[in-house]
Design a protein around this nucleic acid. Structure first.
Lengths: 201, 201
DNA sequence: TCAATCCCTGACCGATCGGTCAACTAGCGT
DNA sequence: ACGCTAGTTGACCGATCGGTCAGGGATTGA
């Protein structure tokens, strides 16, 4: 079993480039150069640029899907402990897949691909988890700011955001506090906010 | 005096396209088509695509510059009423220039142009207005979430955000409340939060 | 030894990109 | 009537885009 395959390298490089440079601004040639292969090799492993995008985003979407299904919709509408637990899983998800989240949150409007449509669908679904009163403008503002803000902070703003690699636990707790504030998750449940293992992209 | 000139139409169309479709994903041909002119006409009024971008973003950056200078840096570090006043001006700025803000907040990392460099500089400057303790991770998280979240909400997420054109005053007050929360602006100063006239792009 | 399969590559394709240019039109001052 | 200028355009340019294809090693099983 090889430690890294060419396809894995391409996925990794492509994710970085799509997030930092933007999907349209990133050419297959750039990805090939950074991975040390030819452009034709990229298109050998992935049928098209769009297929590469899907291969890059799908793992994150799959995990988000799992989180949404595990928690369940009905339980969250009542608020309380399950809600804090969901927030924790969500923050860990953001930290682990921050680059992917940044792509399908901040570039969804400019990319026309099935995997982006799927991402939009899941974001809408997730919004219902926090919106008890769909009619409330402030509730919508809070969710939108939390989602877009977290994505921007974690992947889009090296000049504003904190140094991410260093002091990850502190970043995690800060995110939990800030997003918990925004999403009206009751913070008085220290047991639910216990640590969980997180890994990097 | 004509009500609308061709150059004005191009600026307006280009801003919409850059914000909704993305700078790189928007071709000069698209802008020309939407404005009802030829591609050569676009390049007659603006020397290059980059010059068009600058013409589109500069008004917003000029206004942001003015806000930052008017309020002054020293006065804000003490917190208090001036801080609430600044937040109000900032929210009105976001609402008036939401498309421009979305471009240079969420696409800055993918565009290599002087006007984007200027935007990054101003965002960094603005960050200092709210960061009393630069070392605090949570403070940085709060500012980043507020900035990126507001930009995302106002221009990037039609599927999540509220209907913006309708009920603009409610959106404004909701933004004031949420961002005030995030940026630790003392909400107990109702006089400072009085209404002010705002216009649309 | 041979064929098959897996990776990988350079050469090439049509389309589109941002940008240039000469020419045309319409108005306007003289 | 004239020339000047501003505005607009189609034709065209080189470069790069995403994508195709035939073929060249290297490994493997028979």
């Amino acid at each position: 079993m090889p430690t890294t395959t060419t396809a894995d390298d391409l996925r990794r490089v492509a994710l970085e480039e799509f997030a930092s440079t933007g999907y349209h601004a990133t050419s297959i040639q750039q990805i090939a150069d950074r991975a040390g292969v030819s452009k034709a090799t990229v298109l050998y492993h992935f049928a098209s640029k769009e297929a590469l995008l899907e291969a890059v985003l799908s793992p994150a979407l799959d995990q988000l899907d799992q989180i949404l299904q595990n928690v369940g919709l009905a339980g969250l509408r009542d608020g309380g402990a399950q809600r804090a637990l969901f927030l924790e899983q969500f923050v860990d998800f953001l930290l682990e897949h921050r680059s992917a989240v940044y792509v399908f949150v901040n570039q969804s409007s400019s990319i026309d691909a099935p995997v982006i449509t799927r991402a939009i669908r899941e974001i809408e679904l997730m919004a219902t988890f926090f919106e008890e009163h769909v009619d409330s403008v402030e509730q919508r503002v809070r969710f939108g700011v939390a989602l877009g803000g977290a994505a921007y902070l974690l992947a889009g703003a090296p000049q504003v955001g904190p140094a991410i690699t260093a002091d990850l636990p502190e970043l995690r707790s800060a995110l939990l506090a800030v997003l918990g504030d925004l999403l009206a998750v009751d913070p008085r449940q220290p047991a639910a906010l216990a640590s969980a293992s997180i890994t990097t992209d």
